[in-house]
C-alpha cells in the first residue's frame, strides 16, 4: 500500500516585490518522511515552509496538504510548527508555559474555544515528554533560549500532529541539548511515523537522521536520499567534488 501524501507542491513560485524567491518548486512528501531542507542563505528555505503553512501567498503553482488544496485545508491540528527564532517573544508578555502550550490545542477546537481539564492533561503529558513539567507555571519570557525552544516545541506537539515543520530549531541549543533534541525528533519520526521537515545548516544532523535531503537554491537543486546526494555525479558537478565531499562527510 502506498503511503499517504502529506504535502505536495507543484510549480510553486513565490516572489517578494517582484524578486523571485522560489521558482517552480515541485516536491512530494510522503507520510513518515524525514526531510532535511538545506541550501545557502537566501535560498528560499523559510519561504518554502511559510508558503506551505499558508503564511505567504504564492505567485503561481499549487500546494496540497493531506490531499487537499491549501486554500481548502482546515485540519490544522495535523500540522505542528516550530518557528525559526524565539526573538518574537515579547519580554513583557505575562504568558505561562501552560498557557502558551495550550495555544497548540486551539487548532483542535471550534468556537468558543476553551481549554478543558482534559486539555490540561494533554499539556501536562507533553511537558513531561519534553522534560519541562517543572516549568509549567513559569513565564515563558523569563526562560532561557533552550527552555523557550522546548516550550515552543511542546506547543507544536501538543495536538499530536502528523506533520512537524521545524525551522532551524537548534540555533539556541548547546551541543548536549541539541543532541537530545534531535534524538527526540527522531523518536517521533520512528515511533509515531510523524513526518518531519527540518530546515538546518547542520548537514551532520541530516546525514544521521533524515531519510531525504532537499537542497533548495530558489529552485530544487536536489531531492532524494542523502546517500544518493553523496554519490550523485550531477551534484559533484554542481557543487564541485570537494564541497560535495565536505557536505557528505560532516557527519563523520
Amino acid at each position: 500500500m502506498s503511503k499517504e501524501t502529506v504535502l505536495e507542491t507543484r510549480g510553486l513560485t513565490v516572489s517578494y516585490n517582484g524578486n523571485p524567491v522560489l521558482n517552480k518548486v515541485s516536491v512530494p512528501v510522503a507520510a513518515g518522511d524525514y526531510i532535511g531542507l538545506v541550501g545557502p542563505n537566501g535560498a528560499g528555505k523559510t519561504t518554502f515552509i511559510r508558503a506551505v503553512l499558508g503564511l505567504v501567498s504564492p505567485l503561481s503553482g499549487s500546494i496540497e496538504l493531506f490531499g487537499k488544496p491549501l486554500t481548502a485545508f482546515s485540519d490544522w491540528r495535523r500540522v505542528g510548527y516550530l518557528p525559526q527564532r524565539q526573538s518574537f517573544i515579547n519580554p513583557l508578555f505575562p504568558a505561562t508555559v501552560r498557557e502558551v502550550v495550550g495555544h497548540g490545542l486551539l487548532s483542535c477546537k471550534t468556537w468558543p474555544r476553551r481549554i478543558s481539564s482534559g486539555d490540561m492533561l494533554r499539556i501536562r503529558d507533553t511537558l513531561v515528554m519534553l522534560d519541562i513539567a517543572d516549568l509549567k507555571d513559569e513565564l515563558v519570557a523569563t526562560l532561557s533560549g533552550g527552555q523557550q525552544q522546548r516550550v515552543l516545541l511542546a506547543r507544536a506537539l501538543v495536538s499530536s500532529p502528523d506533520l512537524l515543520v521545524l525551522d532551524e530549531p537548534s540555533t539556541a541549543l548547546d551541543p548536549q541539548i541539541r543532541e537530545s533534541f534531535y534524538d527526540l525528533i527522531h523518536g517521533l519520526n520512528v515511533d509515531r511515523s510523524m513526518t518531519i521537515i527540518l530546515i538546518t545548516h547542520d548537514t551532520s544532523t541530516i546525514g544521521r537522521y533524515a531519510n531525504k535531503l532537499l537542497y533548495l537554491d530558489k529552485r530544487v537543486v536536489f531531492y532524494g536520499s542523502f546517500k544518493e546526494f553523496c554519490t550523485s555525479e550531477d551534484m559533484g558537478e554542481y557543487f564541485g567534488g570537494f564541497t560535495q565531499h565536505l557536505i557528505c562527510h560532516q557527519h563523520g
Binding site: 518557528p83 495555544h103 497548540g104
Partner: peptide, 9 residues
C-alpha cells in the same frame, strides 16, 4: 503572543 502560530493553528 504569536500571530504567525495563531494563523498556522
Amino acid at each position: 503572543f504569536d500571530e504567525e502560530f495563531a494563523r498556522v493553528s
